[in-house]
Design a protein around this nucleic acid. Structure first.
Length: 270
DNA sequence: CTGGTCACCTGGAAGC
DNA sequence: TGCTTCCAGGTGACCA
C-alpha cells in the first residue's frame, strides 16, 4: 500500500502517541519478512525510550537514542495502535509494547522490512544509497533536469527509481506526470527545463495533497483498521483505465512499463 | 553504467 | 460453487 504519503501519515499519526514512552516488551511472531527480523530484537528494545520517529523515503526510523529501528511497509504493511492484550490476528508479525498501547505491524505479503542498527541510520545499507527527498527544498526542476540528463529510459520508471528520488511509487508517478502534462513514455533526458519545473512542482504538490488528505484522518488511521484512512484523495488517472480524463474527456489509457501498470491521458500528456 | 525482467508472498477479483 | 489466472501501492538481484 504505502508510498511516501502513507508512510508520512503513519509517522504523524504514531508520533504523538509514542514519543517519550518506554518499551515494556516487544514480540516477533513471524521473523521471515523480506529481511529476517533479528531474533534478539525484543531483548534489544526492552527498556529503551522512543525519542522520535523519522521518515526517509518510504522507510520509518524509530529513534531510541542509542539504536534505531528501521522499518519498511513493503506493498501491504500497515501499523496500528491497539490496546495491550488485544489478540493478534493473522499476519500481525511484530508488536512494540508500551505501558498503555501496542504498536502492531501487519503485513500479509511480507515484503516489509524490520532491522536494528547501532550505527547512524543514514549510513545503514538500506538508507545510504537513497535519492533526494522530493519534499526537500533542494528538489526542484533544475535538480530533476540534471538528474535525468543521462537517463534515456521512459520518464515514468525513472521517477520510480529510489536511487534518484525517493517516495514516488506507481500511483504518484502516474499522477504527477498527468498533472505535469508529460507522457510517461517520453525519454527522461528529452524533457525541457521548463517542463522539468512543472514536473517537480507536480510531484511535490501531488505528494503534499495526499499527505494533507490522509493527515486529516490520522487518528482514525492508526486507531481503527489501519487500512483506509489515507487513500481518500481521488486519483485523476491511476486505476481509471477507459474512464474519461477529468480535463478533456479522452479515455484514460493503461500501458505496461517495466512490469508496472501506467495510467495516462494520451491527449493531455505529450 | 543502464534498463528490463523476475522473484519474493498472500489475497481478492475476474474468468470459466 | 469451485477452480484457475491475473493483478496489487516495493525493492533489489540478475541479465543483456
Amino acid at each position: 500500500m504505502p508510498e511516501l504519503p502513507e508512510v508520512e501519515v503513519s509517522r504523524q499519526g504514531l508520533l504523538p502517541h509514542l514519543r517519550g514512552k518506554r518499551v515494556l516488551a516487544a514480540a516477533v511472531r513471524t521473523a521471515r519478512l523480506r529481511h529476517e527480523i533479528p531474533p534478539e530484537l525484543p531483548r534489544l528494545l526492552s527498556g529503551l525510550t522512543l525519542q522520535d520517529i523519522q521518515r526517509r523515503g518510504k522507510y520509518l526510523v524509530f529513534d531510541f537514542g542509542r539504536g534505531w529501528l528501521i522499518l519498511h511497509l513493503g506493498m501491504s504493511g500497515s501499523l496500528r495502535l491497539v490496546a495491550p492484550g488485544t489478540p493478534p490476528q493473522k499476519h500481525d508479525h511484530f508488536d512494540l509494547g508500551f505501558a498503555d498501547t501496542v504498536m502492531r505491524l501487519r503485513d500479509p505479503r511480507r515484503f516489509g522490512t524490520l532491522v536494528w542498527t547501532d550505527e547512524r541510520p543514514e549510513h545503514h545499507p538500506l538508507l545510504a544509497a537513497l535519492g533526494i527527498e522530493p519534499l526537500s527544498p533542494a528538489f526542484n526542476g533544475q535538480w530533476l533536469h540534471d538528474a535525468m540528463r543521462k537517463r534515456s529510459a521512459p520518464v515514468k520508471p525513472v521517477l520510480m527509481d529510489g536511487h534518484l528520488l525517493v517516495g514516488v511509487g506507481n500511483i504518484y508517478a502516474s499522477e504527477s506526470l498527468y498533472h505535469a502534462g508529460i507522457s510517461p513514455l517520453r525519454a527522461a533526458n528529452r524533457i525541457s527545463h521548463g517542463r522539468c519545473d512543472l514536473l517537480a512542482v507536480a510531484i511535490r504538490e501531488t505528494l503534499g495533497a495526499s499527505i494533507a488528505a490522509g493527515g486529516s484522518s490520522v487518528r482514525d488511521y492508526v486507531h481503527s483498521d489501519g487500512g483506509a484512512g489515507c487513500f481518500q484523495l481521488s486519483c485523476a488517472v491511476y486505476d481509471r483505465d477507459g474512464q474519461a480524463c477529468p480535463a478533456c474527456g479522452t479515455p484514460v489509457r493503461i500501458t505496461r512499463q517495466a512490469g508496472r501498470s501506467t495510467y495516462w491521458c494520451p491527449s493531455c500528456q505529450r
